[in-house]
């Protein structure tokens, strides 16, 4: 079960909603923020806490792109592949990252430092090509910028 301190935080979140179970998304965000992923144990605990079935928690975790059940690298690249970014050279950015990191989208480097995702439109087409480095938006990408980010986070 969750610790008492944890439960206190979760109670604050669920209090805002008409039904406890409606708070599943914010609860998952909180757990992922604290633990870096949603583990199977966490799914079980969340289900007990919200009084819903484990399978319901799992189907929600697997439906939404932002929840993940494996640990990401310390620095996680989420690079946009949709139209506006692709028109401004997004594909070359993705290719360059694959080459520099030696991994394909969905993978993490063996040292755990970097991971790469290719995502759909991030809502920042004015600074295309764009990505999220962990949660930070970084736009007007070019190979030099990518190299600098990799060197800084090595």
């Amino acid at each position: 079960m969750f610790s008492a301190e944890y439960l206190q935080e979760l109670d604050k979140i669920t209090a805002k909603y008409e039904q406890k179970r409606a708070a599943l998304l914010p609860v998952l965000h909180y757990v992922q923020h604290k633990e870096g992923l949603i583990s199977q144990d966490a799914e079980q605990n969340i289900a007990e806490y919200l009084e819903i079935s484990v399978v319901h928690v799992h189907e929600v975790v697997s439906f939404y792109h932002l929840f993940h059940q494996t640990k990401k690298g310390q620095y996680h690249f989420s690079v946009c592949q949709t139209t506006a970014c692709a028109l401004r050279g997004g594909e070359q950015i993705i290719e360059h990252l694959k080459e520099r990191l030696g991994i394909t989208p969905g993978q993490t480097t063996p040292d755990g430092k970097f991971s790469l995702s290719v995502v759909e439109c991030l809502g920042a087409c004015e600074i295309a090509p764009v990505m999220q480095g962990n949660k930070e938006y970084i736009g007007c990408l070019n190979k030099k910028k990518i190299d600098e980010i990799i060197d800084k986070n090595k």
């Binding site: 909603y17 998304l25 914010p26 965000h29 439906f63 939404y64 792109h65 932002l66």
Partner: peptide, 8 residues
């Protein structure tokens, strides 16, 4: 209440 989506 401000509710954060999760990327869908």
């Amino acid at each position: 209440v401000v509710h954060q989506g999760a990327g869908a």
